[in-house]
Amino acid sequence: MNSVTATADIAVPADWRDFVALTKPRVMTLVVFTGLAGMLAAPVQLHPVLAFTAILCIALGAGAAAALNMWYEADLDALMKRTRNRPLPAGRMDRQTALHFGVGLSFFSVLLMGVATNWFAAGVLAVSILFYVLVYTVWLKRRTPQNIVIGGAAGAFPPVIGWAAATGDVTLLPLLLFTLIFLWTPPHFWALSLFVRSDYAAAGVPMLPVVSGPTVTRQQIALYTLPMAAAALAPWPLGLAGPLYGIAAAVLSAVFVLLSLQVLANRATDPAEMKPEKRLFAFSILYLFAVFGALVFDHWLIG
């Protein structure tokens, strides 16, 4: 059965589910959530239909960027266990189709954002797609072990776009949210790359644990956590968020720092003994959801 479909690859058009897979729908949940939080924390309230459309555009833009990322990285994805079964390396779709889909979806999301909300938000969305595809995927991912830091900047755009869709501008609070996700990404991703290291090594991606070893990676994780916590706390003393947010951010960040110190203390090189890393990775996802949730709660209950 498998060999039959494999030989008929060129003739059989790709299944629509493979187009969905091309947009990395699982990554999208965090993008949608942080984008929504940025929009809800803004002082201006959008009409519900326009708010829905703005979030849809952020999700589609992220999906377009993911599709273009997979178009460019098909060779690399074929070398890693985790990505080998994606539509392109598995041969279920040809590259040209993925490129057309990605470019089409990019234009669609940006134009719809401009029509539904404002052209400034559409511009920021366009910049975020171009940044992820050109600066991260094409330029830096295969060249520097700081690739994740740059990739984090791409993932940090959603709350800024959400805010811009509501207000038509960007102020200090959305920039702080950008900084928070930007500084959160390296500890989050490096914790993961510590216990799945072998995979990146096989593909020759200069992931920090591959290039500099686990000790340096653990130091970097702990180092990034401190300014991250500062960025998370900053809205409170600056008067951009209330005490409800401030206390939640302080407690969550304290736990994050504590878990990162446990990672720093760990000396294991065997993934089986990397409990602190796995714990930090799991908590980091909860952390981002909780901090952004607290911000929206604070804004709607008190602000």
Binding site: V4, A11, P13, D15
Partner: peptide, 16 residues
């Protein structure tokens, strides 16, 4: 058989 598969794919893609 492959022809049937092509038709099936085309139909589901057109529907989506």
């Amino acid at each position: 058989k492959p022809d049937d598969e092509v038709r099936r794919r085309q139909r589901s893609r057109a529907l989506v």
